[in-house]
Nucleic acid binder design. Sequence first.
DNA 1: TGCTAGCACTATTATTATACGAGTGCTAAT
DNA 2: ATTAGCACTCGTATAATAATAGTGCTAGCA
Lengths: 328, 328
Amino acid sequence: MLTDRQCKVLKLIVEKYIKNPIPVGSKTISKTLKCSSATVRNEMSALEDAGLLEKTHTSSGRVPSEDGYRYYVDHLMEPKKMTGEDMLKLQTVFHNQQLALSDVIVKSLQVISDMTNYTTVVLGSTSHENLLKQIEVVPIDDVSMIVIVITDRGHVEHKNIRLQDISLDEVKKTVNLINNLIAGTPIDEVSIKLEYEVKPIIGKYVKQHEQLYNAFYHVFSDFTNQEVNVVGKNKFLTQPEFGNIQKIQSVFSKLENPEILHKIEEDDDNNIKVYIGSESKIDDDVTVIKTRFKNGNHEGTLAIIGPKRMEYDRVVSMLEYMKENIER
Amino acid sequence: MLTDRQCKVLKLIVEKYIKNPIPVGSKTISKTLKCSSATVRNEMSALEDAGLLEKTHTSSGRVPSEDGYRYYVDHLMEPKKMTGEDMLKLQTVFHNQQLALSDVIVKSLQVISDMTNYTTVVLGSTSHENLLKQIEVVPIDDVSMIVIVITDRGHVEHKNIRLQDISLDEVKKTVNLINNLIAGTPIDEVSIKLEYEVKPIIGKYVKQHEQLYNAFYHVFSDFTNQEVNVVGKNKFLTQPEFGNIQKIQSVFSKLENPEILHKIEEDDDNNIKVYIGSESKIDDDVTVIKTRFKNGNHEGTLAIIGPKRMEYDRVVSMLEYMKENIER
DNA sequence: TGCTAGCACTATTATTATACGAGTGCTAAT
DNA sequence: ATTAGCACTCGTATAATAATAGTGCTAGCA
């Protein structure tokens, strides 16, 4: 257990380091705390033994360790009230009645990314939660047409397909069959239903059913598994600890990989959760702060991704504010 | 006018430097050319006077200047036949009958980006060339619905809109009116037609026409002006001359700005054009190689964007090959 | 017992000196 | 015209030095 003063020292070091990423010395702390630098050094030493602080070399100041950040987040941090200015900027987005919820979310995350200089992410509901609502087909010319797939949650995808020598009537017949037979099916089960429920029937009623079946099969097999929206990836370029190209390459490749981002959603805790450094699964210098949201049938995950040296207090309040606003 | 030997020297220096970005000395060249390093030095000096070579400092080897690259591209370079392997990779994409042309283009540009380690770009036709084909509306719940806009060239966009207390019938009536009245209009004129041709009519026949008009007006005013597709932006991270974050930031911001990319299309030459360094409008160390393509009513621009120190011969052949394949 | 002043010690950073090497330009001889 | 030869230049690498910001430890004081 940490003493009261140790807590204060840890808190000061973390907050100092977040403001300015250089190791913090005992003198700096002693100025704020009313005691000598020697006393602070003793406390620092204790905190280092507890694994909460680290040195970069034998005679350097201290830097928070991963556990140090953890302790700070779990016990020391006090959520920082948002400034009126920040709130105002977000409110203008939330109060735009023209925009659909999903657009409001993306727009406000853009605002947050710009305010904080961190990357933001929305993960939409996964495909097994999305039900097929209907498909539409629009012919473009003799051989190509566009298939539009709409889910019950308003997710839309379209694909250009090519068909040789098939009359529009046959296509429309197929579309109607699909809409009648499998609307309401979870997207990731559509392929199966297509094969076992639609294929036999269009085989009977539709000419060139083979080609048509293949085309539609492709449309659904390519359907995006999950809506992923990453805003402000380039903000990482402004963070000093990501000043080398190697690191940027590695972080970017993770942020562009939906599989990796999907891991953020793995635990379905509804509260705000903080994944620090190695817990982030992205990079040891990265922190992910995330929360789930739900408004009617629209649900998903919001995340703010930045350096481990993140303004935790500010970000947590912002996420809380976002969540509240979205949920009503 | 350059002598025969000067051409050879310039060519060797450019190609050497492209392979390995360190200044080229006279000794290296003299090995390939059958003459002494002193002779080469004289020629180099002449080429420097002609503005085709540069030194990084008084006693360094030579580096091609922008004009040097220009001269190389215009007079010295011999297009390099593509390797069978490269062709094969592209052919598997081109021969995929399932894919629509636009998908083939994007997929093949992905392949080219991976083969060359450069960024690739497709610019689709601009909105004044895109005609509105039809719009569709799909209701999602009581207050929100999705409007899907399709152009004659198969470009699809959708938007989520919110309407309070408007019956589906009224919406459908409006959609039908729009489809009947202004299908065939260039996308960027739709807003005007909407105001002068549609608004007066729905004003008569549709209840709550004000709200509906506003919603549709928004849909079209947000319509993307131009299809832009940038593939492999991160390839810049692997190029040594873009090893510092500043530069990467600047290049990325340009590559993400459609306005800037649009400048590539400004001259409508149908042949392959090469914009070197400052001509690229992106960065002094960047080269853009582009060509227009046209297949039926699908036309646009292809570009390969990389360092000024680009494998010009290889890239030009690839673009040529792409263009040929797309155009039939 | 807890706090602190003082001091020896350590590692980083900046500065300077030095040597080395790859390259040039020029001159004189072929 | 070409080239061998040489003095010269500048960038890079290495080592030496000093300055600085920090530490840990000890001993004395409240």
